[in-house]
Design a protein around this nucleic acid. Structure first.
Length: 709
RNA sequence: GGGCACUUAGCUCAGGGGUAGAGCGUUUCCUCGACACGGAAAAGGCCGCAGGUUCAAAUCCUGCAGUGCCCACCA
């Protein structure tokens, strides 16, 4: 046989092996050999098509590929469906940053021009992402590769929207929403972050009542004062109007009693500014008719509106300083608590302060959808690994509020709703522009300029991508087997897929949810580009090979727990891959041209039995999703039992002509088991070695070999 | 204000009722025909603290202390 080099050459092997797999067609479940009746399906969480992959993606690619390769070897009909995400707002932000660097802005472009540029950009990124996934060894079915803006996906999203509207689960309403004045769009509750800040709390004289506020600049929008109904200090004023001195002169204002007010806080009296505070909005809603409608003080650009008189046009913080100064001059500022700590809502992307805004948006009533989603996990129809996340899942779904699914963005799926210019009613279609208004049959219709929250469409991924309701894949692979993703999108994505999939199909989208942790560097820091501590997956692959990276990402990684990766660790497993290479090299060298033994010695049988026991233990680990343990077990057996003990011992045994053939047989047998067990984790080196093994079928691949149970 | 997780070798982490494990690092020896990306050996741990259950606890339970994360409309 040909002399093999003493070190494994990952970079000249991997592409060749991947092509071999791809050529076989076995990534596609329909082309798998043998009778395969049991389906196994994973939908890849589509990576954002706005940037190359990072090491975090390598984690899920590895874990999912492990599951899929394992099940394929176990004889299942396996579908791993890849996709890429247009990632609406995220991509828009990325692209706007690019524009900024070029000295351009989307506000100097038409919407069509911007859309087509971003479209081109994401298509280019899709190619990069696909190439990277292949480099990582992903055995997914490229013939089913789906973009989140593909026709059938959008059609599904539109059908769902229409159904929701018809069934009264989606409604149009003017509500106080989280609004970022920098990005000029509303968000859902999940897209805002809370941060504890220290801000001055101002005590202001309001006629006979004092009140405390951190936002004196919104005073111009006060429509009432609220106190606790049982508060003796203020009882006399409840239901009455009091005259107060303000910066804009004298003003009459109503005092209402409501238990929402905490008499212990501040002075026990609150100004009610329904246009700019969620609590106040709720208060106004409860006391509608009794107190005037909300007055907008802050516009969408974050500047004060005309109702602020001389302060109009000022930005919030400028206005606050001026107002405080003037209140002081007028003797209306009683005192200031400089050390007041409170939670401030920030835009998760740019950290700008969220300005609640009164906007008309599409809202999804989530409670009716949450119920079945809770039930499915409670009853075990869908299991979450690790189990501790079930509690988190329940808590979120039990406390869920209506979901604002409108976004004031350009890049995304346009909302298929048209407003009649005559009667102001909305007509919703499944995508096509309606001929006339569904209410008054007027012809003057204008489409809502907003797009859907990306998560609204992503939430429909499982059944959209499998082509519900008539698709062959839907019938064969839904509900899917495992949803494997990071725990940080449990609410954003996983819970919403549960809700929307159950709503549309009546069935859960997946039987198991496996949540992995985030990747951190060796100092436990979260990896980020701005910190400069990211490990470039492609660079690592060049240096150490894909198998080494995959092993490093798998070993020591347990569900729900963050995982640490360092170059040292990757190098360590590169060494193991090389060890394996040399183990095989030794076995191949010592068994060249060997003949089948007449009988096996007791010792050889014992060794083979031990290997079978290892295979059994590994299988148990695999079934329980304990991948780290599984691969560590093989690692240990291959290195410290097979190499250190069995191969060393064989050096003597093989010199004995009577024992030689039996031992040769045993060594090949055990090596084959090791390669097969290790294949899901380190597919390239194992396949390459398997190809060098003497075997009956010339064309066969380790990828579809039977799992050694 | 709620919830969750973590605390194990110098570092980063697996494990999980019955002689403590991995990677990297450290020390000594070894160029012996699979492999120096290697081999042989070695040092290094009251498995956070305090109770409890048990024949037996690093492992289960309770409390405490630190750390991290998530949720939350405290003007």
């Amino acid at each position: 046989m040909k002399e093999l080099p003493t070190t494994y050459q990952a970079n000249t092997t991997e592409d060749r092996i991947y092509k071999l797999w791809a050529k076989s067609g076995f990534f596609n479940p329909d082309k798998l050999p043998g009778r395969r009746t049991k389906p196994f399906c994973i939908l890849m969480p589509p990576p954002n098509a706005n940037d190359p992959l990072h090491i975090g993606h390598a984690v899920f690619v590895t874990l999912q590929d492990i599951m899929v390769r394992y099940q394929r070897m176990r004889g299942k009909k396996t579908l791993w469906l890849p996709g890429e995400d247009h990632a609406g707002f995220e991509t828009q932000v990325v692209y706007e940053k690019k524009l900024e660097k070029q000295g351009r802005s989307r506000f100097g472009m038409t919407r069509e021009q911007f859309y087509s540029e971003v479209s081109e950009y994401t298509q280019a990124n899709r190619k990069t992402v696909r190439a990277q996934l292949q480099k990582l060894g992903a055995s997914c079915d490229w013939s089913r590769d789906t973009f989140t803006l593909d026709k059938h996906v959008i059609a599904t999203v539109y059908a769902t929207f229409k159904k929701l509207v018809e069934e009264g689960l989606v409604y149009r309403g003017e509500r106080l929403v989280n609004y970022c004045t920098k990005h000029q769009t509303a968000f859902s509750d999940l897209e805002i972050q809370h941060e504890t800040r220290k801000d001055p709390l101002y005590y202001i004289a309001y006629g006979p009542i004092q009140l405390a506020t951190v936002r004196p600049e919104t005073k111009f929008g006060d429509t009432a004062i609220a106190v606790h109904p049982a508060d003796k200090r203020y009882k006399q004023y409840i239901g009455k109007e009091i005259e107060v001195e303000t910066l804009l002169g004298k003003k009459k204002i109503k005092v209402v009693g409501d238990t929402m007010v905490d008499p212990e806080f501040g002075t026990g009296a609150v100004k009610v500014t329904p246009a700019h505070d969620a609590n106040d909005f709720e208060l106004w809603n409860k006391h509608k008719g009794e107190i005037p409608d909300p007055i907008r003080v802050i516009g969408k650009d974050g500047r004060l509106t005309d109702v602020a008189g001389p302060y109009a046009g000022l930005k919030v913080m400028e206005a606050r300083a001026r107002v405080v100064e003037d209140l002081k001059a007028k003797g209306l500022l009683v005192k200031t608590d400089e050390n007041y700590e409170h939670a401030l809502a920030l835009c998760y992307k740019c950290k700008s302060v969220i300005e609640p805004q009164l906007l008309e948006q599409w809202f999804l009533k989530t409670r009716p959808l949450a119920k079945p989603a809770i039930k499915a996990v409670k009853e075990g129809t869908t299991a979450i690994i690790p189990k501790s996340y079930e509690k988190t899942y329940f808590h979120w779904l039990k406390n869920i509020k209506d979901w604002n699914i409108s976004r004031q963005n350009w890049w995304g799926i346009e909302i298929p709703a048209w407003k009649c210019q005559d009667c102001e009613e909305w007509t919703v279609s499944e995508g096509k522009t309606p001929a006339s208004c569904s209410q008054c049959h007027g012809k003057r219709l204008e489409q809502d300029p907003d797009v859907f929250d990306t998560w609204f469409s992503s939430g429909q991924w499982p059944f959209a991508v499998l082509k519900f309701p008539q698709g062959k894949d839907y019938k064969e692979f839904y509900p899917t087997s495992v949803m494997e993703t990071a725990y940080d999108i449990l609410f954003f994505w996983v819970a919403r897929m549960m809700m929307l999939s159950l709503y549309r199909t009546g069935k859960v989208p997946f039987k198991t949810i496996y949540l992995h942790g985030l990747v951190r560097d060796k100092d436990r820091q979260k990896m980020s580009k701005s910190k400069g501590n990211v490990i470039d997956p492609l660079g690592v692959l060049e240096a150490y090979g894909t198998d080494a990276l995959r092993l490093a990402l798998t070993i020591g990684n347990s569900p729900g727990q963050d995982t640490v990766i360092s170059e040292d660790k990757i190098r360590g497993y590169r060494n193991f891959v090389n060890k394996l290479w040399n183990i095989a090299r030794f076995v191949l060298l010592e068994t060249e041209g060997c003949k089948p033994p007449k009988k096996l010695s007791l010792q050889d049988r014992k060794l083979m039995g031990e290997a079978a026991a290892v295979a059994e233990a590994v299988t148990r680990d695999m079934e329980l999703y304990r991948f780290s343990q599984a691969v560590e077990r093989i690692y240990h057996y291959a290195w410290h039992t097979f190499a250190d003990k069995i191969l060393e011992d064989s050096k003597k045994v093989l010199k004995d002509e009577k024992l030689k053939a039996g031992r040769q047989y045993a060594l090949l047998h055990i090596l084959k088991i090791i390669l097969a067990l290790l294949h899901p984790f380190a597919p390239f080196v194992t396949e390459e070695l398997y190809q060098k093994l003497p075997r009956a079928k010339k064309q066969s691949l380790l990828m579809i070999e039977k799992w050694p149970v």
